[in-house]
């Protein structure tokens, strides 16, 4: 018998700090699997945000930097300029990227910065206990929208993939989901494509991953995956929003 599924080498043998059933853990593993398959563990430098994955520097075996809230793309820019040959990615949540870090996201894309962003969208601030995020849905009840998010008070959810794909410096932008096994596999393929886009020097790549937050959604882990399908996907359609990888990239 041969092992056909095991913990990827670049994922640390460490108890992940995520809540039971939180799909951050799946996405962390996918990143590690892709790094392993591309043989890049020795030349990867990851940047983790402030949010549920703030201690992701404990979850990977490659070099890591922990960035201030929202600033991971800027930190990654600094790293990439020093080590242009290394794989440099950020791993960020929707508060980190689409709220406080919006400028850093847009400008690293506009600069065609040769980094990859793994953007985990679960429509809520998880680490701080369930506040509204820029991607929270209309009528979504959170700790800071106890009566549901209302357009007249909190406006509309932000669509990062669509927004970033309008920037010429963005080479590859796809929105995927980890709500099911087939979609998890597609997410892995998207992460792989983003990392390959970067290593081929073709420019900025971003993978937006629809993910769950059972604890703060007040659901069981299985029900939470159902919410991704029934409520999040209509608002955040999956798909490739930009792909210049075949035509030589954008740099």
């Amino acid at each position: 018998m041969e092992k056909i599924f095991e913990r990827p080498h670049s994922l640390s043998d460490f108890v992940l700090s995520y809540c039971p059933g939180c799909t951050h853990g799946v996405i962390n593993r996918l990143v590690a699997e892709v790094v392993d398959e591309m043989g890049l563990e020795g030349s990867t430098i990851g940047v983790c945000p402030v949010g549920c994955s703030v201690t992701a520097y404990n979850f990977f075996e490659f070099d890591m930097q922990e960035a201030a809230h929202g600033r991971a793309p800027a930190v990654a820019t600094g790293i990439k300029r020093v080590h242009p040959d290394k794989l440099v990615f950020t791993y960020q949540g929707d508060g980190d990227l689409a709220a406080i870090g919006t400028a850093e996201t847009i400008h690293s894309a506009a600069r065609a910065e040769n980094i990859s962003i793994i953007f985990v969208n679960n429509t809520i601030y998880g680490m701080t206990g369930g506040q509204m995020a820029p991607t929270s849905l209309i009528d979504q009840v959170t700790q800071t929208t106890p009566f549901g998010r209302k357009v007249e008070n909190q406006g509309y959810p932000i669509h990062v993939s669509e927004m970033v794909s309008t920037l010429k410096g963005a080479c590859y932008v796809e929105r995927v989901s980890v709500d099911s096994v087939p979609n998890i596999r597609k997410t892995k393929a998207a992460i792989r494509k983003a990392f390959e886009c970067q290593m081929a020097g073709k420019g900025f790549s971003l993978v937006e991953v629809l993910s769950s937050c059972p604890t703060n959604w007040g659901m069981s882990p299985v029900e939470a995956l159902e919410r991704i399908r029934t409520e999040m996907m209509p608002e955040f359609p999956l798909g490739v929003y930009k792909d210049c990888t075949e035509t030589g990239g954008v740099r």
């Binding site: 430098i45 930097q65 600033r71 800027a74 600094g78 020093v82 080590h83 850093e104 400008h107």
Partner: peptide, 16 residues
Amino acid sequence: ESEVAAINMVYGAAGA
């Protein structure tokens, strides 16, 4: 894009 981004680029490059 801002001094905030600039100092965080410094953080990344210094850490590298």
